[in-house]
Simulated scan of single mutants.
Amino acid sequence: MGNVLIYAPLVNSSQATLFTADDSSEKIVESFFGDDTGARIRHVVIEITTASGKEVRVVIPNDHLEAVVYVDGDLV
C-alpha cells in the first residue's frame, strides 16, 4: 500500500481519482512510464516552487517504500 492520493476536483464538486492510498508506488511510477523503459526507474520526482518561493519536492519510489516530501530540502 502506498501513501499517495492523486485526484482532480471537478466543477460539479465530485472528483476524478487517479490513484488512491491503496495503490502501490510501483503502480504509480509504471503508469507514468510503462514497464519497458530499459534501465529500471528508481522514482518519480514532482517539483513545485510556491508563490512564496518555497521549493517542494515529492518523491514517489518505484518499490514498496512510501512517498516522501521535502520543503526547501528538508524532509517533512
Rank of each mutant, 00 (worst) to 15 (best):
M1N: 15
M1Y: 12
G2R: 15
G2S: 15
N3F: 12
V4F: 07
L5D: 13
L5F: 12
L5M: 11
I6M: 14
A8I: 09
P9M: 04
L10D: 06
L10F: 00
V11L: 02
V11M: 02
V11F: 02
N12K: 09
N12H: 07
S13E: 10
Q15F: 02
Q15V: 03
Q15G: 07
A16V: 02
T17Q: 13
T17W: 04
L18T: 05
L18K: 11
F19I: 05
F19W: 12
F19R: 03
D22Y: 03
I28T: 05
I28F: 04
V29M: 07
E30A: 14
E30T: 07
S31T: 12
F32S: 10
G34D: 08
D35A: 09
D35M: 07
D36N: 15
T37Q: 11
T37H: 11
T37F: 03
T37R: 14
G38L: 06
A39W: 01
A39D: 14
R40Y: 04
I41K: 14
R42P: 01
V44Y: 06
V45C: 03
V45D: 10
I46V: 12
I46T: 10
E47F: 00
E47S: 15
I48V: 08
I48S: 10
T49Q: 13
A51P: 01
G53M: 02
G53R: 04
K54C: 01
E55D: 07
V56F: 01
V59A: 03
P61H: 10
D63K: 09
H64A: 14
H64Q: 14
L65I: 00
L65Q: 15
E66T: 13
E66M: 11
A67M: 09
V69Q: 12
V69N: 03
Y70F: 14
D72E: 12
D72F: 07
D72W: 06
D72R: 12
G73Q: 07
G73T: 09
L75A: 11
L75H: 10
